[in-house]
Simulated assay, not measured.
Amino acid sequence: LLKNDGAALPLAGVKSLAVLGMLATKGNIGDNGSSKVTPPYTVSILQGIKKLASGVKVSFCGGVPARSKMLAKNSDAAVVVVGLGAKDENEGNDRDNLTLRPADIELIKLAAAENKRTIVALIGGSAITMDGWLDQVSAVLMAWYPGMEGGNAVARALFGQVNPSGRLPIVFPKSEDQLFKFENKELKVKYDHYHGYRWFDDKGLEPLFPFGHGLSYTTFEYGPPKLDATEFGAGGKLAATVEVKNTGAVAGETVVFLFVGAKNPPVKRPKKDLRAFARVALQPGESKSVRLEVDAQELARFCMMKMDWVLDPGDYVALTGPSADPATLQEAGFSVK
């Protein structure tokens, strides 16, 4: 769940629902190359919604502007299902850009102009930029390629039978300008060795959604990291404990990430590296201590001159929180001797 303004989700109290976009009718499970699978059946998002929407009038349009506009205007909420498929990204074909098709963007804008409670369900295998429409919709759910039961899974999230708890395994940029230039047709290209959140940290860029981002239908409070020891040797271990509390009204799950950065490294290193993470399930008002451990040797860097791993002695910082966003992280210092 990437965005959820005004508690647009879950779809509580909805009596009529417009479902827009042809992808809502497709069992869209991804590539047709070597990763292709042939399941015994697939459940589309529209099928999943209709199965769960008891007492809700569900109206569908594949994207015809006039009818889509009418359905969005006359419904309590609108779900726009757009994104990518095997023809857009596959084993032998990369995407030319990270945006949606112009027709998909226009469908989103059309629905959002008519219905303040417009939710976008995105299908795709990687980052999708949202410039020009994100601020017009209430909620965005990234469904990826959800598999044979994907329609039921998405519907359960939309109607609150499941509290979303997924976290982004990549960074979603605001625009392609934040990334290194992609040379789709070149046979040989040299890129910087920083990618993902490390690239954004190094360049001082703020992404659209950071690595680890993901919303819930509840809220969580994260305490600072408490370290077992603030000094240890090469055979030691970094152990951090983080207190997490569910401060909302429904049960939910969250993820605590542990990043580590070297304060004054002898060579250039990323500002932080992911070293551990843990998922925790909490009832409303419940608190739990989450323990994260990292062997000291996992903090080593590979030295090209020695062709071996080297653990640099010195000062480090442990950063914990719900994502790679610096604003969400709390830190504690330690030293390796």
Rank of each mutant, 00 (worst) to 15 (best):
L2Y: 02
N4E: 03
D5K: 13
A7P: 07
A12I: 10
G13A: 10
G21D: 06
G21I: 01
G30C: 04
S34I: 15
Y41P: 08
Y41N: 06
A53P: 05
G55H: 01
C61Q: 14
M70G: 09
L71E: 04
L71P: 03
L71N: 10
S75Y: 07
A78R: 10
V82R: 01
D88F: 00
E91C: 06
G92N: 14
N93H: 13
R95F: 04
D96Y: 05
L98M: 14
P102M: 09
I108R: 04
L110N: 11
E114K: 12
T118Q: 01
L122K: 03
I123E: 02
S126D: 10
S126A: 11
M130D: 06
D131Y: 06
G132L: 08
W133E: 14
W144R: 13
Y145V: 01
N152E: 14
A157H: 14
Q161N: 15
S165Q: 09
V171P: 06
D177Q: 09
Q178H: 09
K181G: 13
K185P: 02
E186I: 01
L187C: 11
H193G: 14
R198S: 13
D202F: 11
P210N: 12
F211A: 01
G214C: 08
S216F: 05
Y222P: 03
Y222Q: 08
G223T: 02
G223C: 03
D228N: 12
G233M: 06
A240I: 13
T241Y: 10
E243Q: 14
V244P: 05
K245Y: 00
T247V: 10
G252W: 05
V255C: 15
F257P: 03
P266E: 11
V267H: 13
K268N: 15
K271S: 11
K272L: 14
D273I: 14
L274T: 12
R279I: 13
R291Y: 13
V294F: 08
L299P: 01
A300I: 02
M307Y: 13
D308H: 00
D312H: 11
A318P: 03
L319C: 02
D325P: 04
D325V: 01
Q330T: 08
A332V: 05
G333N: 12
F334D: 02
S335Y: 02
K337N: 14
